[in-house]
Structures are given as structure tokens and as C-alpha cells.
């Protein structure tokens, strides 16, 4: 994956660049030396069986899980020093229940604007209007405008997933990182997700998503990386003719079925 572009070139630094990423949990290697570079405008799917390390990989890219070895950068900065979080929208696997205090759909989605707001400066009227407009747009994009005042936890799993995506949309980031947005999601929500993703791809946004299987998202994906046992087993990218062509990573060839 060393393609000669210096990773320290901050101006043109890619959204994510990981080299030799190793993550250990309880003495076991969950990621064992992953090289991954995500370019601006990529719509990358991270595939693989359960326990292959897909979620760990995206969390490590964001610095949510520490690396035991190797390094990773977000727009040219290690996560601990990265300050441009408003450029990143993270969509976790699920909406945690927490202690059971309810939140409305609108409250959850509006919290996606936090990275854009200063804590100390009082919000100007125009800021508030911009926040409201962005939240409205995000809710409409995922088809939940009519549910804004409902309790988010009482929605179906697929609708909750759309709420989480809307939260990331509301922040208007450049990069979206989605952890299994399609897992356990009904057909309607899958269609809504595909339409949202198409909009993002057309707008030139970068998307990294973890998926078990792609389903209706397949035509939107420009690259795939397949993990097995914490290593990149296969990669593929869409060529000029729109077909996916892949390669099997040499280091993991032995374990590839």
C-alpha cells in the first residue's frame, strides 16, 4: 500500500491513512498489521465475517481504539492531535439505551452539530437558524421529518439507524464513518440509506462503511477491503468501466478460502 505519496503532506493528506495498524484486546490481536489509505471521495466498504476486526478497524481509524503498533492519521494528523473533528461524522452501530432517559429524534440529530459550535461564545441567531436548517435537512434526507418529536428509543432498529445517520449528516462533515449501517435494517430503511449514500457520493463526500453484505449499496461502492482474522485479505476497486476488480493480499493469501 506504499504508493509513494508522503503521508506528512498535510495540505493534500488523505482522510485516513493507517500503516501497520495493530490492535490488541485482552492479549489477543484483533488487528494484525493493517495498511489502509482512504482517499478523498472514496466510497469504501470494509467487508468480512464476524470477528474479522471490521468495527475495530474503523474505531482505530478514528482513534477511538488505541493502536498497539503502527500509526494512523486523520487528514495527516494522529488522532490525538487532530483538531478538525467537524470534518468527520461517525455513525456508531446502535443508539445506546444508557440509563433510559428518553431523547427525541430531533435532540439526537441536533447533537450532531456540536463539533461546529463554540462552547463559550453564545450562539448567534444566525447560528441557531443554521443549526435548525441543517437538522431539518438531515431529518428529511433520511425520511424521518415527521418523527422529530418522537422518542428515538421507541423507533424500530432501522429507523434508529437512520436517526444516527441523520445526526452525522447534520454536522455536514466531509467524511462519514459508518459502523454496520445496514445490520438488522428493514428494506425501507435500506432504501433510504442507499439514497442518502448516493447523495453523499454525488457530492464528493468520502464514506467508509462497515458491512456484512452490501445489498442495495453495492452499485455505490467504489472500493472494498475485505478483512479476515484482523488482516486485509482482499481488496477491490471500481475500474474505468465500472467493474470491480480485485486483488488478494499476498500476506494473507494462505488464509484466504
Amino acid at each position: 500500500m506504499t504508493d509513494g505519496v508522503p503521508a506528512t503532506d498535510r495540505a493534500g493528506a488523505p482522510p485516513f491513512a493507517m500503516t501497520g495498524g495493530v490492535v490488541r484486546r485482552d492479549g489477543r490481536e484483533v488487528l494484525s498489521g493493517v495498511d489502509l489509505r482512504v482517499g478523498a471521495g472514496d466510497v469504501l466498504a470494509i467487508l468480512g465475517p464476524n470477528g474479522a476486526g471490521k468495527s475495530t478497524l474503523v474505531k482505530a481509524l478514528l482513534g477511538l481504539v488505541p493502536l498497539a503498533a503502527g500509526r494512523t492519521e486523520i487528514y495527516g494528523e494522529p488522532p490525538a492531535r487532530f483538531r478538525g473533528w467537524r470534518r468527520v461524522g461517525y455513525v456508531p452501530q446502535r443508539l445506546p439505551m444508557g440509563g433510559g432517559v428518553p431523547s427525541t429524534v430531533r435532540e439526537v440529530v441536533a447533537s450532531g452539530r456540536i463539533a461546529r459550535r463554540s462552547r463559550w461564545l453564545p450562539a448567534l441567531v444566525t447560528d441557531r437558524a443554521a443549526d435548525r436548517a441543517a437538522v431539518d435537512r438531515a431529518l428529511e434526507a433520511v425520511g424521518l421529518a415527521g418523527r422529530a418529536r418522537d422518542s428515538a428509543h421507541l423507533l424500530s432498529g432501522g429507523q434508529q439507524q437512520r436517526v444516527l445517520i441523520a445526526r452525522a449528516l447534520a454536522g455536514e462533515p466531509d467524511v462519514f464513518v459508518m459502523d454496520e449501517p445496514t445490520a438488522g435494517v428493514d428494506a425501507a430503511s435500506q432504501a433510504a440509506l442507499a439514497a442518502t449514500l448516493r447523495g453523499l457520493a454525488d457530492a464528493g463526500r468520502t464514506v467508509v462503511l462497515v458491512a456484512h453484505e452490501l445489498g442495495p449499496l453495492e452499485p455505490l461502492i467504489t472500493r472494498t477491503v475485505e478483512l479476515e482474522h484482523g488482516r486485509v485479505a482482499r481488496e477491490s476497486a471500481r475500474d474505468m468501466t465500472g467493474r470491480m476488480t480485485g486483488s488478494t493480499a499476498g500476506s494473507a493469501a494462505g488464509s484466504a478460502a
Partner: peptide
């Protein structure tokens, strides 16, 4: 009043809060 929005996100999902730069 000052930290309410951030505390809300923190209590909702700590990882998302971290990925929002909080």
C-alpha cells in the same frame, strides 16, 4: 446551562462524543 449540549452527547455515547472532538 453552558455544558448541557456536550454533556448530553457524552452521556448518550462516549465514543461519538470523542469522535466529535469533545
Amino acid at each position: 446551562a453552558v455544558f448541557g449540549r456536550e454533556l448530553f452527547l457524552l452521556c448518550q455515547d462516549e465514543e461519538v462524543a470523542r469522535a466529535a472532538g469533545l
